[in-house]
Simulated scan of single mutants.
Amino acid sequence: MNYDQLAKEILSRVGSIESVTSIVHCVTRLRFQLKDEGLSKTEWLRQE
């Protein structure tokens, strides 16, 4: 999977780009602030 596909997959799993308030990264993590965390599929995101 290339980075563009991975980014689209991650955004679809957090709800959509509209539900993202902010994103911060560190070495091993992406940290999302979401408007509605109920839309995210966190179990999938934690597996990856």
Rank of each mutant, 00 (worst) to 15 (best):
Met1Val: 03
Met1Asp: 03
Asn2Val: 00
Asn2Ser: 04
Asn2Arg: 02
Tyr3Met: 06
Ala7Leu: 14
Lys8Leu: 09
Lys8Tyr: 07
Glu9Phe: 07
Glu9Pro: 01
Ile10Asn: 00
Ile10Phe: 04
Leu11Arg: 01
Leu11Asp: 06
Leu11Ile: 13
Ser12Phe: 06
Arg13Glu: 04
Arg13Asp: 09
Val14Ile: 10
Val14Leu: 02
Val14Gln: 08
Gly15Glu: 07
Ser16Val: 11
Ser16Ala: 08
Ser16Thr: 04
Ile17Val: 10
Ile17Gln: 14
Ile17Cys: 08
Glu18Leu: 13
Glu18His: 13
Ser19Lys: 02
Val20Tyr: 03
Val20Leu: 02
Thr21Ala: 15
Ser22Asp: 13
Val24Asn: 15
Val24Leu: 08
His25Tyr: 07
His25Cys: 08
Cys26Tyr: 09
Thr28Asp: 05
Thr28Gln: 00
Thr28Met: 04
Arg29Thr: 02
Leu30His: 05
Leu30Gly: 05
Arg31Asp: 05
Gln33Ile: 13
Asp36Asn: 15
Glu37Pro: 03
Glu37Gln: 07
Gly38Met: 10
Gly38Lys: 14
Leu39Tyr: 01
Ser40Asp: 11
Ser40Trp: 00
Glu43Arg: 02
Trp44Met: 10
Trp44Thr: 04
Trp44Asp: 06
Leu45Gln: 01
Arg46Leu: 07
Arg46Asp: 15
Glu48Tyr: 13
